[in-house]
Write a protein that binds this DNA or RNA. Sequence first.
DNA 1: ATAAGAAGCGGAACCTAGTCCGCTTATTCA
DNA 2: TGAATAAGCGGACTAGGTTCCGCTTCTTAT
Lengths: 206, 206
Amino acid sequence: MPEELPLIALPTEQTERADAASNRRRILEAATELFAARGPDCVSMQDVAQAAGVGMGTMYRRFGDRAGLTFALLGERHRDLQEQLLRGAPPLGPGAPAAERLHAFGRARIALLDDGEAQMLLTTAKAESATLRGPDAAYRTHLAVLLRDAAPALDVEYAVNTLVMAFDARLHVHFRYERDWPVERIQAGWCALADVWLAAGAGAGV
Amino acid sequence: MPEELPLIALPTEQTERADAASNRRRILEAATELFAARGPDCVSMQDVAQAAGVGMGTMYRRFGDRAGLTFALLGERHRDLQEQLLRGAPPLGPGAPAAERLHAFGRARIALLDDGEAQMLLTTAKAESATLRGPDAAYRTHLAVLLRDAAPALDVEYAVNTLVMAFDARLHVHFRYERDWPVERIQAGWCALADVWLAAGAGAGV
DNA sequence: ATAAGAAGCGGAACCTAGTCCGCTTATTCA
DNA sequence: TGAATAAGCGGACTAGGTTCCGCTTCTTAT
């Protein structure tokens, strides 16, 4: 039996009108270009709307807010990773021991964060954390499943949260550019956290 | 020898001009009243300035930004807690074993968060986390000292971050009001996290 | 084919955090 | 006491995210 399916929802439902779908695509393309060209902190929603040739209303109808647009832009990479988690080869995919799968996942996720994602997420810093609504929301299930199997003695929900909070974009930027840590140190730290939960939870259960 | 002194800076330096100090006081009083009366999410910086009888320039000269004002409002409670950590009776103050001190601190800090602080911090959600600049910034040192002594085998800086990230206001509100957890569960989760780091780090060191 | 209605659209208006700058006032020192 | 000066002040202004609403366009059922 495969794990639960915490797939990131594909934004394009079939009930979307043709012009709406084309606008969505144009907005995403325009945003991708502008973000790449100027950096995400020098691109306003106006800029994107103008470049895409749509009005503000359209932007906000499609994506809800700036965070929604950002998450949509990040969606593809995360759908790939998620696909690997569900059906890829071990250690990312099923088949490897929990500790190895956790490590592989953590490293991969932090690598994405390090590859421009953190900067993008920082520009969305409104009233909610990416952890609860953004890409990482989808990984909670994955982590919960792994922990529940391998460390049943834990308050799995709490442990999962410590693990995803560690993907916080501001924290990543802090470590990386204010403290000059190499990515590997952040990844190692995360793996240690995962191990530590596993060790603590393995005892009582099974 | 006492621990290092990560004291939250008192905002009133003696070099502050008399009118400036009085304005600071009036702003803080006005903000306290308005926040209490309407809730922090229904009070703009304009509102506070008007109620205090000062201009916007004064607000921003005194407190830098909305987050600065909020942190100042929270300051007193945190100075109290910090005082207890440094010079109070065990288990908060010096003298108790590290695990007990960590538990006592975590519970106290989460109690503050639960007592209105989370809602206030949510309205500041700009480009930085309270973890890096707000009240919790001051607790990093405390945690680092305790961990360094009791668990020298760890990457203490990373572990400290997982511990303070768990004080995230959004996360707290999520657990508390969207998932309806009792405070005690959050506190227990945090204590478990602290224990788990201690257990992992105690082995190799000393 | 066409009319009815839902879905979508544009962009001006709004709200609020944060900045700027010319004027005012407390302080200090002769 | 009375300049000189640095600190502080007010409030109009800017910028950017978000909302609103009257108009347009796609869809579909007849």
